[in-house]
Design a protein around this nucleic acid. Structure first.
Lengths: 207, 207
DNA sequence: TCTCGGATTGTCCATCAGGCCAATGTTTTT
DNA sequence: AAAAACATTGGCCTGATGGACAATCCGAGA
């Protein structure tokens, strides 16, 4: 039961490597030859013909997960329809990837919380995972800090945020400093990754 | 984070008790009062108004699973649509129930394998068939530029990227300049928003 | 062969980002 | 009432960032 990662030579995905240090990288040309029943396989959605590859390998009895740089519901459907059991952002942090691994290895389906609603149907109320943790991070902030954080998360500069909130750029910096301290990040980049992308730790229902 | 089992007085479900010895049985009348955010809840589908109960509790932030004596895809859909993350046979053996627990506790969805195709397929149809892949912003970049972009998208500084790729910080800047030009963005923030968070549009104007 | 795009590095420079120290006024909590 | 937290702004300083202009090397084509 090998752990395999099908990708182009260029993609190293350090976070993925961090999550699965013992896994094997496989070029798409050799995937069909190497994957066997029971293998756990990750496939990048930027490969040529990834859907047919996923179909083939899942019919063979492998557990398929698809990673995408641009997750969207349409692609998620393609992945699931092709037989994948998991679909996530290619740049997801290691704990999240391990969570996906855990879920899919146990006959579960894993898709990003924000796509869940669309995957299951119109009115699916998915209040789990990301949104909750996301709000946890934002919940640590004050009203004003949250406003600054959200503006910065849209890619605005301090000056632009200042104009939008009608305060001085200096004040924006003050809020940002407080935000960084509270969230334990070093700069706006890390902050964005913290509040706008999925973050998860594996839950062990250890009785 | 309690483990709760909402059922009529008659249902004892020894297998369920075996799987979760420490769990609490709750009559449906008290479920709304006792369930809190983060609780893991199992609901029997033979209860009056189980769908609204599931909806309420899942919106409250609990993790919902539905157990049925007569599993079928229609009911599975109802359960998922109401916010449940798991759906299984009420008489499933203990290890399977624990598996459902594990999967759903980790943001996964669990439905019986024989219903999987219909659930996924149904959602697929509901959204209007296959759709075209949006062009990948990363595809516009060269091999090296992509590597830089991905590293930067993880929140790394130019210096860190330089170390990782074993090039000068100056070269990193050169690549970034080319990336910004190609993607039409002004800085790394905008680039990240561009390559790692493309909005999920299902609309398909072409065709 | 000669040109073109890509990878690499350099210097110079204006701007941006954040940290540090400090201040004032308001609101909330104890 | 006193303490703590929050919102606001100031100056100063260091390092990070990105553009402009320019150079070298290399492989793929015309």
């Amino acid at each position: 039961m090998a752990e395999l990662f099908v990708c182009q030579g260029s993609d190293e995905l350090p976070r993925w490597r961090e999550a699965f240090p013992q896994a094997i990288r496989v070029p798409p040309s050799q995937a069909r030859a190497q994957v066997m029943h029971g293998d756990r396989v990750w496939v990048m959605s930027n490969l040529e013909g990834w859907t047919s590859l996923v179909t083939t390998l899942s019919q063979r009895g492998a557990i398929l997960r698809v990673l995408s740089y641009t997750p969207n519901s349409a692609e998620a459907f393609q992945a699931l329809d092709a037989g994948a059991r998991g679909y996530a952002h290619a740049l997801s942090p290691a704990p999240l990837l391990q969570q996906v691994e855990l879920v899919t290895a146990n006959q579960g389906i894993w898709v990003p919380a924000e796509l869940l609603a669309q995957v299951v149907g119109g009115a699916f109320k998915a209040l789990g995972g990301e949104s909750r943790l996301q709000e946890d991070a934002l919940a640590l902030l004050t009203e004003r800090e949250r406003a600054v954080a959200l503006a910065v998360a849209e890619g605005q500069t301090n000056k632009e945020v200042a104009r939008r909130l009608d305060i001085t750029e200096r004040t924006v910096k003050a809020h940002l400093g407080a935000i960084f301290r509270k969230l334990g990040v070093r700069d706006r980049l890390q902050m964005i990754l913290r509040i706008s992308r999925q973050d998860a730790r594996v839950t062990d229902p250890g009785q």
